[in-house]
Design a protein around this nucleic acid. Sequence first.
DNA 1: GTCTATAGGTTGATAGAC
DNA 2: GTCTATCAACCTATAGAC
Lengths: 207, 207
Amino acid sequence: MIEEQVHTKTRLLDAAEKLFGQNGFDATSLRDITTEAQVNLAAVNYHFQSKDSLIDAVIGRRLEPVNRGRIQMLDAAGPSPTLEQILQAFLAPILEQEIWPAVPLIGRVLSNPDQFLERVFKKHLAAVAKRFGDAIAQALPGLPAEEVAWRLHFMAGSMSHVLVRSQVLPAMSGGLCQPQDREALMARLVTFLSAGFRAPATRLEGN
Amino acid sequence: MIEEQVHTKTRLLDAAEKLFGQNGFDATSLRDITTEAQVNLAAVNYHFQSKDSLIDAVIGRRLEPVNRGRIQMLDAAGPSPTLEQILQAFLAPILEQEIWPAVPLIGRVLSNPDQFLERVFKKHLAAVAKRFGDAIAQALPGLPAEEVAWRLHFMAGSMSHVLVRSQVLPAMSGGLCQPQDREALMARLVTFLSAGFRAPATRLEGN
DNA sequence: GTCTATAGGTTGATAGAC
DNA sequence: GTCTATCAACCTATAGAC
């Protein structure tokens, strides 16, 4: 056959990615996935051992290329990248065309505090977080380390929120928000976040 | 009895709030809840009709006072509140001492895109969102409506993220983030978000 | 109001034919 | 590699005694 066959394993990953992103991990059964993929129920346990392993595979397939892209863009910005370059390197790979179908899934991962998924999160994201935290601290020399750490979480929250809710943002904003325009979304995010990061360190009364 | 008896209904709401916040709605069974509350399984269906109704009750018990507090603080700031006053009115009621045990739950609600919870979200939050959106638009007269709508979502994301992950932020930040200090957290959020809101409108290439 | 007991359905996972 | 058939465990919800 010249035509490339779409294998059962790939069909399962695609279906699981779609349904996990739509309804979450707990609410998606293996039967939902095999029905969507139009394969047999037993195929899940043949190609993957368990539902947990399937979840891990679904996540890793998308997150690994994203993280490689992030590091690559950050490296390409040279030894002393600007704050905007750092933010773009972090955001752009996740808003790329090819990744778009997996965006709800990634949002799910980022907003799920369960222990299992937290482990997966740390497995795939801890190194990248460290790298970008260091880059931002270097770009903003006056900012205390606690403030950098907090603002990284504010950034992660803004990003994951617009990802998770991308399907319903238009309705919730009376049509004002159009997440399909990914370039505009990234530009708005960079504008908002870079201003937030450049704010003077918070003056705390107690200290 | 002079001592106030903690009724089964309240024990159920407390236990459900704790477990829903820790593990999510789908992953928490009624058995988990009745075990935690040390009441019988059938009590759930006696005091509430169904799991969905229980979820609704758990959410409403916390979100209604929060929203009343938000409107109250915004009203107290007068007819032309500053951006900082608006942000504080939105954030303070959810970071108050009495509400703190329910914070993971509220984070769960905000990060859950399922249709049922989305309906609950709109039921409890749409009016407040409109009110605060208008206030921010008034405080930042030059900012286009789309930009205001987007930045409201960025704010909601930052807030919900630190709520959802409040249990694990210290570990993820190497001890730098201490969410227990709620006053400091609110001050840092207001600093970051007000700078973001005050950023000039994003210049889009396509327009 | 609180319990026991159980109905009725769904789940993840596996055994074994082909 | 793919199927059918099925198990054991779990779930929500209810019936009915007390």
